[in-house]
Design a protein around this nucleic acid. Structure first.
Lengths: 155, 155
DNA sequence: ATATTTTAGTTTGTCTAACAAACAATATAG
DNA sequence: CTATATTGTTTGTTAGACAAACTAAAATAT
Protein backbone atom coordinates (compact mmCIF):
# COMPACT_ATOMS: atom_id res chain seq x y z
CA UNK A 1 0.00 0.00 0.00
CA UNK A 2 1.52 3.36 0.70
CA UNK A 3 2.68 4.39 4.08
CA UNK A 4 5.75 6.34 4.88
CA UNK A 5 5.75 5.36 8.48
CA UNK A 6 3.84 2.17 8.32
CA UNK A 7 4.09 -1.00 10.29
CA UNK A 8 1.32 0.18 12.60
CA UNK A 9 1.38 -3.10 14.47
CA UNK A 10 5.12 -3.31 14.80
CA UNK A 11 5.71 -6.50 16.68
CA UNK A 12 9.11 -7.08 18.28
CA UNK A 13 10.16 -9.26 15.39
CA UNK A 14 9.18 -12.91 15.11
CA UNK A 15 8.85 -14.78 11.81
CA UNK A 16 6.06 -12.46 10.60
CA UNK A 17 8.41 -9.70 9.54
CA UNK A 18 6.50 -10.03 6.30
CA UNK A 19 4.99 -6.55 6.46
CA UNK A 20 8.41 -4.92 6.56
CA UNK A 21 9.37 -6.32 3.19
CA UNK A 22 5.88 -5.66 1.89
CA UNK A 23 5.81 -2.04 2.93
CA UNK A 24 9.30 -1.30 1.77
CA UNK A 25 8.73 -2.86 -1.63
CA UNK A 26 5.43 -1.05 -2.03
CA UNK A 27 7.07 2.21 -1.03
CA UNK A 28 9.95 1.68 -3.37
CA UNK A 29 7.67 0.87 -6.24
CA UNK A 30 5.72 4.09 -5.76
CA UNK A 31 8.93 6.06 -5.73
CA UNK A 32 10.14 4.39 -8.91
CA UNK A 33 6.79 4.90 -10.58
CA UNK A 34 6.93 8.53 -9.62
CA UNK A 35 10.34 8.90 -11.21
CA UNK A 36 9.17 7.13 -14.34
CA UNK A 37 6.04 9.24 -14.40
CA UNK A 38 7.93 12.49 -14.16
CA UNK A 39 10.43 11.41 -16.77
CA UNK A 40 7.65 10.44 -19.14
CA UNK A 41 5.82 13.69 -18.48
CA UNK A 42 8.85 15.59 -19.77
CA UNK A 43 8.03 14.09 -23.16
CA UNK A 44 4.29 14.23 -22.64
CA UNK A 45 4.09 10.46 -22.30
CA UNK A 46 1.66 8.80 -19.92
CA UNK A 47 2.95 5.98 -17.74
CA UNK A 48 1.44 3.40 -20.02
CA UNK A 49 2.86 4.99 -23.17
CA UNK A 50 6.26 5.10 -21.54
CA UNK A 51 5.99 1.48 -20.62
CA UNK A 52 4.97 0.66 -24.16
CA UNK A 53 8.09 2.30 -25.55
CA UNK A 54 10.18 0.41 -23.03
CA UNK A 55 8.72 -2.87 -24.14
CA UNK A 56 9.16 -2.12 -27.80
CA UNK A 57 12.81 -1.22 -27.43
CA UNK A 58 13.72 -4.80 -28.16
CA UNK A 59 10.57 -6.54 -29.32
CA UNK A 60 7.98 -6.41 -32.07
CA UNK A 61 4.97 -8.04 -30.48
CA UNK A 62 1.51 -8.28 -31.92
CA UNK A 63 -1.53 -6.75 -30.26
CA UNK A 64 -2.38 -9.90 -28.36
CA UNK A 65 1.11 -10.22 -26.92
CA UNK A 66 1.07 -6.59 -25.89
CA UNK A 67 -2.23 -7.14 -24.11
CA UNK A 68 -0.75 -10.05 -22.20
CA UNK A 69 2.42 -8.30 -21.24
CA UNK A 70 0.64 -5.13 -20.16
CA UNK A 71 -2.17 -7.06 -18.52
CA UNK A 72 -4.72 -5.03 -20.42
CA UNK A 73 -7.72 -6.01 -22.44
CA UNK A 74 -7.06 -6.30 -26.16
CA UNK A 75 -9.55 -3.52 -26.79
CA UNK A 76 -7.44 -1.23 -24.62
CA UNK A 77 -4.42 -1.99 -26.77
CA UNK A 78 -6.21 -0.82 -29.88
CA UNK A 79 -6.61 2.64 -28.40
CA UNK A 80 -3.16 2.73 -26.90
CA UNK A 81 -1.53 1.92 -30.23
CA UNK A 82 -3.87 4.23 -32.11
CA UNK A 83 -2.76 7.14 -29.98
CA UNK A 84 0.90 6.19 -30.16
CA UNK A 85 0.66 5.78 -33.90
CA UNK A 86 -1.00 9.16 -34.24
CA UNK A 87 2.07 10.58 -32.54
CA UNK A 88 4.39 8.67 -34.85
CA UNK A 89 5.95 6.76 -32.00
CA UNK A 90 5.04 3.29 -33.24
CA UNK A 91 3.64 1.65 -36.34
CA UNK A 92 1.50 -1.37 -37.09
CA UNK A 93 3.24 -3.77 -39.42
CA UNK A 94 0.94 -6.32 -41.05
CA UNK A 95 2.02 -9.71 -39.82
CA UNK A 96 3.53 -11.79 -42.58
CA UNK A 97 2.17 -15.01 -41.15
CA UNK A 98 -1.32 -14.03 -40.02
CA UNK A 99 -3.39 -11.73 -42.12
CA UNK A 100 -5.53 -10.78 -39.16
CA UNK A 101 -2.68 -9.45 -37.10
CA UNK A 102 -0.10 -6.74 -36.79
CA UNK A 103 3.24 -6.45 -35.19
CA UNK A 104 3.90 -3.23 -33.41
CA UNK A 105 7.26 -1.60 -33.79
CA UNK A 106 8.93 1.63 -32.80
CA UNK A 107 9.35 4.24 -35.48
CA UNK A 108 12.72 5.97 -35.68
CA UNK A 109 11.11 8.86 -33.83
CA UNK A 110 9.83 6.50 -31.18
CA UNK A 111 13.22 4.90 -30.81
CA UNK A 112 14.92 8.22 -30.42
CA UNK A 113 12.50 9.35 -27.77
CA UNK A 114 12.79 6.03 -25.97
CA UNK A 115 16.54 6.47 -25.91
CA UNK A 116 16.32 10.01 -24.62
CA UNK A 117 13.87 9.17 -21.89
CA UNK A 118 15.96 6.17 -20.99
CA UNK A 119 18.83 8.53 -20.34
CA UNK A 120 16.67 10.76 -18.22
CA UNK A 121 15.46 7.83 -16.17
CA UNK A 122 18.95 6.54 -15.65
CA UNK A 123 20.02 9.92 -14.47
CA UNK A 124 17.18 10.16 -11.99
CA UNK A 125 17.30 6.66 -10.67
CA UNK A 126 21.05 6.86 -10.54
CA UNK A 127 20.59 9.86 -8.33
CA UNK A 128 18.23 7.98 -6.05
CA UNK A 129 20.57 5.04 -5.92
CA UNK A 130 23.30 7.47 -5.06
CA UNK A 131 22.45 7.04 -1.40
CA UNK A 132 23.78 3.50 -1.63
CA UNK A 133 27.33 2.31 -1.85
CA UNK A 134 28.42 0.51 -4.98
CA UNK A 135 28.20 -2.82 -3.17
CA UNK A 136 24.73 -2.05 -1.94
CA UNK A 137 23.62 -1.05 -5.40
CA UNK A 138 24.81 -4.35 -6.77
CA UNK A 139 23.06 -6.22 -4.00
CA UNK A 140 19.86 -4.33 -4.54
CA UNK A 141 19.95 -4.86 -8.29
CA UNK A 142 20.52 -8.55 -7.86
CA UNK A 143 17.82 -9.02 -5.24
CA UNK A 144 15.34 -6.89 -7.16
CA UNK A 145 15.91 -8.90 -10.29
CA UNK A 146 15.53 -12.14 -8.43
CA UNK A 147 12.15 -11.10 -7.07
CA UNK A 148 11.04 -9.58 -10.34
CA UNK A 149 11.71 -12.82 -12.10
CA UNK A 150 9.90 -14.87 -9.48
CA UNK A 151 6.52 -14.08 -10.93
CA UNK A 152 5.01 -15.82 -14.00
CA UNK A 153 1.98 -17.36 -12.38
CA UNK A 154 -0.49 -14.42 -12.54
CA UNK A 155 -1.64 -15.79 -9.20
CA UNK B 1 11.50 1.26 -18.50
CA UNK B 2 10.33 -2.26 -18.92
CA UNK B 3 12.51 -4.91 -20.38
CA UNK B 4 12.85 -8.43 -19.26
CA UNK B 5 16.10 -8.93 -21.07
CA UNK B 6 17.28 -5.39 -21.23
CA UNK B 7 20.71 -3.89 -21.11
CA UNK B 8 20.88 -3.78 -24.88
CA UNK B 9 24.21 -2.04 -24.83
CA UNK B 10 25.74 -4.27 -22.21
CA UNK B 11 29.22 -2.97 -21.77
CA UNK B 12 31.79 -5.17 -20.07
CA UNK B 13 31.30 -3.39 -16.75
CA UNK B 14 33.00 -0.09 -15.96
CA UNK B 15 31.55 2.45 -13.56
CA UNK B 16 28.40 2.89 -15.68
CA UNK B 17 26.72 -0.21 -14.34
CA UNK B 18 23.95 2.24 -13.76
CA UNK B 19 21.53 0.63 -16.20
CA UNK B 20 21.59 -2.64 -14.30
CA UNK B 21 20.20 -1.06 -11.17
CA UNK B 22 17.85 1.06 -13.26
CA UNK B 23 16.40 -1.84 -15.17
CA UNK B 24 16.07 -4.08 -12.19
CA UNK B 25 14.33 -1.42 -10.13
CA UNK B 26 12.00 -0.56 -12.98
CA UNK B 27 11.23 -4.23 -13.49
CA UNK B 28 10.63 -4.78 -9.82
CA UNK B 29 8.35 -1.80 -9.59
CA UNK B 30 6.20 -3.07 -12.45
CA UNK B 31 5.93 -6.45 -10.77
CA UNK B 32 4.91 -4.87 -7.49
CA UNK B 33 2.42 -2.60 -9.20
CA UNK B 34 0.96 -5.60 -10.92
CA UNK B 35 0.53 -7.39 -7.61
CA UNK B 36 -1.06 -4.31 -6.08
CA UNK B 37 -3.26 -3.89 -9.11
CA UNK B 38 -4.54 -7.44 -9.01
CA UNK B 39 -5.10 -7.27 -5.28
CA UNK B 40 -7.08 -4.06 -5.65
CA UNK B 41 -9.06 -5.50 -8.53
CA UNK B 42 -10.33 -8.24 -6.22
CA UNK B 43 -12.17 -5.48 -4.39
CA UNK B 44 -12.91 -3.49 -7.51
CA UNK B 45 -10.44 -0.81 -6.53
CA UNK B 46 -8.34 1.02 -9.08
CA UNK B 47 -4.64 1.48 -8.36
CA UNK B 48 -5.22 5.04 -7.28
CA UNK B 49 -8.13 4.14 -5.01
CA UNK B 50 -6.01 1.44 -3.43
CA UNK B 51 -3.22 3.86 -2.89
CA UNK B 52 -5.64 6.31 -1.35
CA UNK B 53 -6.80 3.74 1.17
CA UNK B 54 -3.18 2.92 1.96
CA UNK B 55 -2.43 6.53 2.67
CA UNK B 56 -5.50 7.02 4.81
CA UNK B 57 -4.73 4.03 6.99
CA UNK B 58 -2.83 6.27 9.33
CA UNK B 59 -3.55 9.83 8.29
CA UNK B 60 -6.41 12.28 7.90
CA UNK B 61 -5.07 14.71 5.33
CA UNK B 62 -6.98 17.52 3.68
CA UNK B 63 -7.51 17.68 -0.05
CA UNK B 64 -4.43 19.76 -0.66
CA UNK B 65 -2.19 17.38 1.24
CA UNK B 66 -3.61 14.46 -0.68
CA UNK B 67 -2.88 16.22 -3.94
CA UNK B 68 0.71 16.73 -2.89
CA UNK B 69 1.24 13.20 -1.71
CA UNK B 70 -0.36 11.66 -4.76
CA UNK B 71 1.27 14.16 -7.09
CA UNK B 72 -2.09 14.94 -8.63
CA UNK B 73 -3.83 18.17 -9.40
CA UNK B 74 -6.24 19.28 -6.69
CA UNK B 75 -9.08 19.03 -9.17
CA UNK B 76 -8.29 15.35 -9.63
CA UNK B 77 -8.60 14.83 -5.89
CA UNK B 78 -12.12 16.17 -5.89
CA UNK B 79 -13.23 13.41 -8.26
CA UNK B 80 -11.20 10.74 -6.55
CA UNK B 81 -12.73 11.50 -3.17
CA UNK B 82 -16.19 11.93 -4.66
CA UNK B 83 -16.07 8.43 -6.06
CA UNK B 84 -14.59 6.94 -2.91
CA UNK B 85 -17.20 8.71 -0.85
CA UNK B 86 -19.97 7.41 -3.07
CA UNK B 87 -18.69 3.94 -2.26
CA UNK B 88 -18.61 4.71 1.46
CA UNK B 89 -14.89 4.12 1.67
CA UNK B 90 -13.97 7.58 2.91
CA UNK B 91 -15.67 10.69 4.21
CA UNK B 92 -15.00 14.40 4.10
CA UNK B 93 -14.81 15.86 7.59
CA UNK B 94 -15.12 19.65 7.70
CA UNK B 95 -11.88 20.98 9.04
CA UNK B 96 -12.30 22.47 12.49
CA UNK B 97 -9.68 25.12 11.84
CA UNK B 98 -10.41 26.14 8.27
CA UNK B 99 -13.95 26.46 7.08
CA UNK B 100 -12.88 26.10 3.47
CA UNK B 101 -11.31 22.72 3.94
CA UNK B 102 -11.98 19.09 4.69
CA UNK B 103 -10.04 16.30 6.16
CA UNK B 104 -10.48 12.98 4.49
CA UNK B 105 -10.80 9.90 6.62
CA UNK B 106 -11.55 6.24 6.15
CA UNK B 107 -15.02 5.07 7.06
CA UNK B 108 -15.26 1.85 9.06
CA UNK B 109 -16.07 0.12 5.78
CA UNK B 110 -13.03 1.65 4.17
CA UNK B 111 -10.85 0.61 7.05
CA UNK B 112 -12.09 -2.95 6.94
CA UNK B 113 -11.47 -3.19 3.21
CA UNK B 114 -8.03 -1.64 3.57
CA UNK B 115 -7.21 -4.25 6.18
CA UNK B 116 -8.45 -7.11 4.03
CA UNK B 117 -6.59 -5.97 0.96
CA UNK B 118 -3.53 -5.42 3.07
CA UNK B 119 -3.65 -9.08 4.00
CA UNK B 120 -4.03 -10.10 0.41
CA UNK B 121 -1.08 -7.98 -0.62
CA UNK B 122 1.08 -9.37 2.12
CA UNK B 123 0.22 -12.86 1.05
CA UNK B 124 1.11 -12.17 -2.55
CA UNK B 125 4.25 -10.19 -1.97
CA UNK B 126 5.28 -12.67 0.67
CA UNK B 127 4.97 -15.33 -1.99
CA UNK B 128 7.15 -13.35 -4.37
CA UNK B 129 9.68 -12.71 -1.66
CA UNK B 130 9.63 -16.42 -0.98
CA UNK B 131 12.35 -16.88 -3.55
CA UNK B 132 14.70 -15.09 -1.18
CA UNK B 133 16.26 -16.34 2.00
CA UNK B 134 15.35 -14.62 5.22
CA UNK B 135 18.65 -12.76 5.20
CA UNK B 136 18.13 -11.62 1.65
CA UNK B 137 14.62 -10.44 2.45
CA UNK B 138 15.96 -8.33 5.27
CA UNK B 139 18.66 -6.91 3.06
CA UNK B 140 16.20 -6.12 0.32
CA UNK B 141 13.76 -4.48 2.72
CA UNK B 142 16.47 -2.35 4.17
CA UNK B 143 17.94 -1.29 0.85
CA UNK B 144 14.53 -0.63 -0.64
CA UNK B 145 13.61 1.56 2.28
CA UNK B 146 16.85 3.44 2.07
CA UNK B 147 16.27 4.27 -1.58
CA UNK B 148 12.60 5.02 -1.08
CA UNK B 149 13.47 7.53 1.56
CA UNK B 150 16.13 9.16 -0.55
CA UNK B 151 13.63 11.14 -2.53
CA UNK B 152 11.99 14.39 -1.24
CA UNK B 153 13.33 16.71 -3.88
CA UNK B 154 10.79 16.15 -6.66
CA UNK B 155 13.85 16.64 -8.87
C1' DA C 1 -11.03 47.92 9.80
C1' DT C 2 -11.30 47.07 5.37
C1' DA C 3 -9.41 46.21 1.00
C1' DT C 4 -6.35 43.10 -1.43
C1' DT C 5 -4.27 38.92 -2.20
C1' DT C 6 -3.71 34.14 -1.37
C1' DT C 7 -5.43 29.67 -0.47
C1' DA C 8 -8.71 25.46 -0.50
C1' DG C 9 -11.63 23.25 -2.96
C1' DT C 10 -15.13 22.65 -6.84
C1' DT C 11 -16.87 23.00 -11.57
C1' DT C 12 -16.58 22.55 -16.40
C1' DG C 13 -14.67 20.95 -20.45
C1' DT C 14 -11.42 17.92 -22.68
C1' DC C 15 -8.56 13.97 -23.32
C1' DT C 16 -6.54 9.46 -22.15
C1' DA C 17 -7.12 4.88 -20.18
C1' DA C 18 -9.66 0.85 -19.29
C1' DC C 19 -13.32 -2.61 -19.76
C1' DA C 20 -17.06 -5.48 -21.80
C1' DA C 21 -19.85 -6.99 -25.40
C1' DA C 22 -20.68 -7.40 -30.13
C1' DC C 23 -18.54 -7.81 -34.43
C1' DA C 24 -15.54 -8.88 -38.87
C1' DA C 25 -11.95 -11.33 -40.89
C1' DT C 26 -8.98 -14.99 -40.87
C1' DA C 27 -7.07 -19.46 -39.06
C1' DT C 28 -7.51 -24.02 -37.32
C1' DA C 29 -9.80 -28.40 -36.13
C1' DG C 30 -12.98 -32.05 -37.12
C1' DC D 1 -15.60 -28.00 -46.03
C1' DT D 2 -17.92 -26.66 -42.27
C1' DA D 3 -17.70 -25.44 -37.39
C1' DT D 4 -15.06 -23.29 -34.02
C1' DA D 5 -11.49 -20.43 -32.27
C1' DT D 6 -8.53 -16.44 -32.55
C1' DT D 7 -7.02 -11.56 -33.70
C1' DG D 8 -8.13 -7.22 -33.66
C1' DT D 9 -11.63 -3.30 -34.00
C1' DT D 10 -15.87 -0.84 -32.77
C1' DT D 11 -19.14 1.02 -29.65
C1' DG D 12 -20.62 2.50 -25.40
C1' DT D 13 -19.54 3.45 -20.58
C1' DT D 14 -16.83 4.77 -16.60
C1' DA D 15 -12.65 6.36 -14.12
C1' DG D 16 -8.77 9.19 -14.00
C1' DA D 17 -6.20 13.31 -15.10
C1' DC D 18 -5.40 18.19 -16.26
C1' DA D 19 -6.19 23.22 -16.94
C1' DA D 20 -8.78 27.27 -16.46
C1' DA D 21 -12.38 29.67 -14.38
C1' DC D 22 -14.72 30.15 -10.27
C1' DT D 23 -16.46 30.55 -5.04
C1' DA D 24 -15.72 31.03 -0.35
C1' DA D 25 -12.81 31.75 3.29
C1' DA D 26 -8.45 33.10 5.32
C1' DA D 27 -4.33 35.83 5.58
C1' DT D 28 -1.99 39.99 4.66
C1' DA D 29 -1.39 44.80 3.79
C1' DT D 30 -2.58 49.32 4.19
Amino acid sequence: MNNETSNPTSQPSGPENTSLIVDSLAQLSYVIQSVLGRSGAMYDLSPIQLRLLGILRDREPNMKQLAERLELDKSSITGLIDRAERRHLVERIPSPEDRRGFNVRLTPDGRRIAREIGGEIERRIGELAGVLTETEREQLASLALKVAEARSRPS
